[in-house]
């Protein structure tokens, strides 16, 4: 998505489609305004002079958090599947998938 001066209605429609949200015309209008405000707020950061600050990937100055390759207990299948909306052959049954795997 491009980053225009101001968030457009099309941008919001695009993001909504990606999130599988069905918005009415009125909602689109309302969220475009609200989201634009959020972005305006975030823009405050760009007013700071950060020329001497290196980009950081993470808020914490920590790297290489690792665990040993050791097997840990798994969940009980019956317990997990009992929470699923639908189950068949010990698998999660999901509605018809529209579109191919990504």
């Amino acid at each position: 998505m491009s980053t225009p001066e101001r968030l457009s209605r099309d941008d919001v429609a695009h993001v909504a489609a990606l999130a599988r949200l069905e918005l009415t015309e009125e909602e689109l209008e309302r969220y475009t305004g609200q989201l634009a405000q959020v972005l305006e707020h975030a823009k405050d950061v760009s007013s700071l002079d950060l020329s001497g600050v290196a980009p950081t990937a993470h808020a914490m100055a920590v790297v290489n958090v690792l665990r040993p390759d050791e097997v840990r207990p798994t969940l009980d299948r019956a317990e997990v599947l009992a929470e699923a909306p639908e189950v068949e052959s010990d698998r999660f049954r999901v509605p018809r998938i529209l579109g191919e795997a990504p």
């Binding site: 050791e70 299948r77 010990d90």
Partner: peptide, 16 residues
């Protein structure tokens, strides 16, 4: 996660 990485196990047994 620490779930076993095994091919061919009973479905949904290596989950957490």
């Amino acid at each position: 996660c620490g779930c076993p990485n095994l091919f061919g196990d009973e479905p949904n047994t290596n989950i957490c």
